[in-house]
């Protein structure tokens, strides 16, 4: 569909807040047309990264470029950002909110925005302040989708939603993405739902990228080995595979490895689940990070860095 053309590329991105570095040396690439989950514990730098991508914040170091444009020069009309606090005017009606969107955005699509609102049975003449959390999120999403963005940035869009509203809204979002090939980058805490929603992942922890890449690819390069412990620690046969996490329970060991060749020796090898993989990385800050080839920024792309340094 989109032959791996990048929607977003971060090069050595760093962001210093008053209390220290919120992001450190983040480099990754998000191909266009992908639906990418941005995962990490609280304070990992997810909101900071989204705000930089939305051109709301300027990075302290490094660059972020959108759709191949020079950093900071991307057309802001191509990106929509739905912030966690969903800033809407509570005194406006839904119709007035959409009108604001129309006045502010040259690419505005009134029908697309109204369709999103109507699909949730939200009355157009209701004041935003009187809506439920799910309805408010729907209006905010309508505002974002009405912009007809090529890149949609969502910060915790599912927080505070009941399961029915969550499924409905995700259906609307994914339907739009299917129709227009929109690239989506959304932060979330709901690990269990990632597997169906996202085909791409970026995992942040302590301001650094721990995992980035295609979900299938990330899963396929890892193996879980379980078995009975012989002596102390893991079996010697696993020693030469890069280890992400090992756990022991009684006589049983569980090891999540990135196999470097065939896995032999005692124990049973199995494919990890996505949630299992993410939890292992989030629990093991010392595990080596992994950026799969499609998520790596190419060496020649670093030209942006040199140019900005020279300028």
């Amino acid at each position: 569909m989109h032959a791996g053309e990048p929607a977003l590329e971060a090069h050595g991105l760093g962001m210093r807040h008053r209390r220290g570095w919120a992001l450190r040396d983040c480099s990754f690439r998000l191909p266009a047309g992908r639906i990418c989950g941005l995962v990490g514990p609280n304070g990992a730098g997810k909101t900071t990264l989204l705000s930089i991508a939305a051109q709301v914040l300027e990075p302290t170091r490094g660059t972020l470029s959108l759709f191949g444009a020079a950093p900071g020069a991307a057309d802001p009309g191509r990106t929509a950002f739905l912030a966690q606090e969903q800033p809407l005017f509570r005194g406006f009606t839904v119709a007035e909110t959409l009108r604001l969107g129309r006045e502010l955005n040259p690419r505005w699509d009134q029908r697309a925005a109204e369709d999103v609102v109507r699909a949730g049975d939200v009355p157009l003449d209701a004041k935003v302040g009187t809506l439920s959390g799910g309805q408010r999120t729907r209006v905010a999403l309508a505002l974002a989708l009405g912009k007809r963005p090529d890149l949609l940035l969502l910060d915790e869009p599912m927080a505070n939603l009941d399961p029915v509203a969550r499924k409905e809204l995700m259906g609307t979002l994914l339907g739009e993405a299917a129709e227009r090939g929109t690239t989506v980058l959304m932060s979330t805490h709901v690990l269990a739902e990632l597997e169906d929603l996202c085909d791409y992942l970026v995992v942040l922890s302590g301001g650094e990228v721990r995992l980035a890449g295609d979900v299938d690819e990330l899963l396929s390069v890892h193996t879980v080995v379980t078995g009975a412990k012989e002596g102390e620690g893991l079996p010697a046969s696993l020693a030469h595979h890069p280890l992400v996490e090992s756990r022991f329970s009684g006589r049983q060991f569980t090891a999540l490895i990135r196999p470097d060749g065939p896995v032999t020796g005692p124990g049973e090898a199995d494919d990890p689940g996505l949630e299992e993989l993410l939890l292992a990385y989030l629990r093991s800050p010392e595990a080596p990070p992994l950026i799969t080839p499609t998520a790596q920024v190419r060496a020649q792309d670093q030209a942006y860095d040199t140019r900005t340094v020279a300028a």
């Binding site: 569909m1 639906i35 499924k167 259906g171 994914l174 339907g175 299917a178 169906d196 085909d199």
Partner: peptide
């Protein structure tokens, strides 16, 4: 069903359906 319909009805990533 098109990937769009599956996405809307079942909240499945369109790339997964494809």
């Amino acid at each position: 069903p098109t990937a769009k319909v599956v996405a809307e009805v079942s909240a499945v990533n369109p790339n997964t359906t494809l």
